[in-house]
Design a protein around this nucleic acid. Structure first.
Lengths: 199, 199
DNA sequence: TACAAAACTGAACGCTCGCTCAGTTTGCCG
DNA sequence: CGGCAAACTGAGCGAGCGTTCAGTTTTGTA
């Protein structure tokens, strides 16, 4: 018969994950020591090991959670227009969590679970854009000869590029402008074909 | 009157930088300890400090060198056609130095000198593409209303995105295809205007 | 209220890191 | 050839890390 155990335990576990995220964002990954994290969470040195087997286990949990949030945020947007997607990507990438995400990508990319989660994010991006293009091709407003898979992949590359610059602090001078030109350029395959057809 | 000093000193210094690069690429940044680097260079613990004031100074020198090589490689290509640029970018980004570059970008991005070197690389990319577009606009084959600066910036974003994926091990399935669609899409602003004009 | 189990504490351990320094070797110059 | 400054060695340092554990506090149950 277990004594204290409740979902309170899960709350403390989550508090540790949140503290780890806070410390990584504030002090960088070199400053993210167990002591700093436990201090942030209001616990002392030994308590970590009631919840995680090691520091790495804590970081794996955090990494999976951050990636999961990004996947959900990207995949659950109501609108599915291509320009909304670019805008959403820009917003998403401006979120304070992203530096952490990038950090984990570099730091833990050796871990198969994290790699899988990242691949899931990329897939979410691709799967959001592909149907739009397919529909446009089915409607005959996009050249059916166009290499749709490659175009979708390019969209993903652009999202990654925006992310990288954001993380690097090399901010795009004006998201609105670059986002607009990306839409413009990506959808020119659509629009111009349509214009040509209507001529 | 100096005794032993020759340019031999510069050679050893370079050997240390090369050893640091080798170890980082082989063991990752956590495995790149001073002992591992000195062992790779065939020197013992104390010798590092005849050439660099600290481990960080060595890494700064390496980072600047890697970035410098990338800038030179990108800027010195003979051909200046846009599709060549994309192809060059792809080749460049497939070079084995790139993981190191990416690592330093993340690791030392707080250092102003390294940030400056990275900005230089970005500038080289932008300056390679901008004249092409400007010329096309001057010739009247590109809509002068098009936001040229933003388009150039998008090109840079694409280069960054390709780089990121390469470093992450999320390889583009077929560089040829994605490169072609990127050219196609970027230059569609050009080609379609020209086609429209000729109609 | 009494008690046992779980949660928590914080001093301490072992380890590895960047770095130092007294002693040794190396190689240029008078 | 002799001498001396520079280059190099490697044992060892202080500090900080992740982790442990014996003791204390807290908590749910009987």
């Amino acid at each position: 018969m277990p004594k204290v155990s409740t979902e309170h335990k899960e709350q403390v576990r989550q508090r540790l994950i949140d503290a780890a995220r806070t410390v990584v964002l504030r002090d960088g990954h070199e400053g993210a020591t167990t002591r700093a994290i436990l201090d942030e969470a209001g616990l002392s040195a030994g308590s970590l090991y009631n919840y995680f087997g090691s520091k790495d286990e804590l970081f794996e949990a955090l990494a999976e959670q951050v990636v999961e949030e990004n996947v959900r945020s990207f995949a659950s947007s109501g609108e599915r227009e291509a320009d909304t997607l670019i805008r959403l990507a820009a917003e998403l990438l401006a979120a304070p969590d992203l530096p952490a995400l990038a950090w984990f990508r570099g730091r833990l990319s050796a871990d198969p679970d994290v790699r899988a989660a990242i691949a899931k994010f990329n897939r979410a991006v691709v799967e959001s854009f592909a149907p739009l293009l397919a529909a446009a091709q089915a409607d005959g407003i996009v050249d059916p000869d166009i290499d749709a898979d490659a175009l979708v992949e390019l969209f993903d590359v652009i999202v990654e590029g925006l992310n990288r610059r954001e993380v690097m602090g090399v901010f795009v001078t004006d998201y609105e402008r670059v986002g607009r030109i990306a839409i413009d350029v990506l959808l020119r395959t659509v629009v111009n074909q349509k214009e040509n057809a209507s001529l």
